[in-house]
Nucleic acid binder design. Structure first.
Lengths: 208, 208
DNA sequence: TGTACATCAGTGAACGCGCGTTCACTGATGTAC
DNA sequence: TGTACATCAGTGAACGCGCGTTCACTGATGTAC
């Protein structure tokens, strides 16, 4: 019975984190009250403080949960891209196509990035949380940079290219695309940016 | 004396808006208190409510001020690019270079976009303010799209290109680049993204 | 198998502080005649 | 030119409400012997 032992608490905690994520994406961390979270989950305020020592602890837990989910999704997408193709460039291009498709099928009307939301409120947070945020971006940079290095080795681009900026461009387009998508209420913006990114990558390594 | 008549009030108002902008970029709108703004400016709280009927009115005024400044800066940059060059493509490329340089020389350590900050807190705002926000993005889209249409007419790209997405890519990279730059504390990220955008534009319309 | 204790997952009441907002009032400057 | 009035750019005090946080306590479940 070890799995079901005291399991209800972990479920409640998870529901609190999920409610907090959508509330923070909708209106920011400072405007998200503990009261609304406990109302959504159905416990009292003291119950909240059993799960999180204070509001900053909630923020930290949200980031950890978000980063882990983010990492798992990207791992899955690009692993599938590589399974369909042996070549590092073409596997990457397939992965980007899958990525664009996934972004186009996001269930939520106005998706957003928790890290970006926190970034525009970071004076509220302690160093630990800001470092988690930076860690998330660096994970994207490293992931894409390693891939681009492998590709550039097999497909040497004719002119100098800023491979680091090209790696960062993926996260940049995602963050920016989520913002434009929210502002205009148009979920096609982000996937189309990723398709353009894919075109750009191909034109750099496979000039016509 | 018409210019100096009752001018102190307008100056105070402008100082409130400037203080509000940097505070909102640092920690978000909900976490920015009226108290800190009046402390920065040196008036009492009732003085604040002489200038703005409530906090939402402050938000609206901030957006109007920001959009106007944004428009003026972009007008200037791309006008200068065109002055240096007759051709629409090369004038645009020069403008993008100037734009990247300007972004690299931003005085603030961690610049940000007010519209993006508002976008991650938009449940706080009324429809009017959200529409101002969307208007800002559409201004970018229109500006870049008109230019790309002119360029595509003179330099027909060989394959289908999503010109709207390519126009949106400018704002997307700026929004995303500001976020990455803030997260990593690296102000070179954004200008390098714009340089990549310039490379992309050139490769689409001037294939090697 | 029963009992004693420990941990889990909360409850309920109270707290103090900061927040946005209101209201009546005021001195300095500008305008009409 | 003087006087009466209007507008500008605020002041000062008070308000009520929501917020995050604390504290003593509790029933249900799990563990040791």
């Amino acid at each position: 019975m070890l799995e079901t032992t005291h399991r209800k608490g972990a479920e409640t905690r998870e529901r609190l984190l999920a409610a907090a994520e959508s509330a923070v994406l909708a209106k920011g961390f400072a405007a998200t009250s503990i009261d609304e979270l406990i109302a959504a989950v159905g416990i009292t305020k003291s119950g909240f403080f059993y799960h999180f020592k204070d509001k900053a602890d909630l923020a930290k837990s949200m980031m950890l949960r978000y980063l882990e989910h983010d990492r798992a999704v990207l791992d899955d997408i690009f692993r599938r891209g590589d399974e369909l193709n042996e070549d590092p460039l073409h596997g990457f291009l397939v992965g980007l196509k899958l990525f664009a498709e996934m972004l186009g099928n996001l269930p939520e009307a106005h998706p957003g990035c928790l890290a970006a939301s926190f970034c525009y409120q970071d004076q509220l947070f302690n160093r630990e949380i800001r470092e988690l945020n930076a860690e998330g971006v660096l994970a994207w940079r490293t992931r894409f940079r390693e891939r681009l290095d492998v590709i550039a080795f097999r497909y040497p681009p004719r002119s100098e290219v800023d491979l680091e900026a090209m790696a960062d461009m993926a996260a940049t387009l995602v963050e920016g695309g989520l913002i434009l998508g929210r502002m205009l209420g148009d979920v096609t913006i982000l996937p189309r940016q990723i398709v353009l990114y894919r075109d750009f990558i191909r034109s750099v390594f496979l000039p016509a």
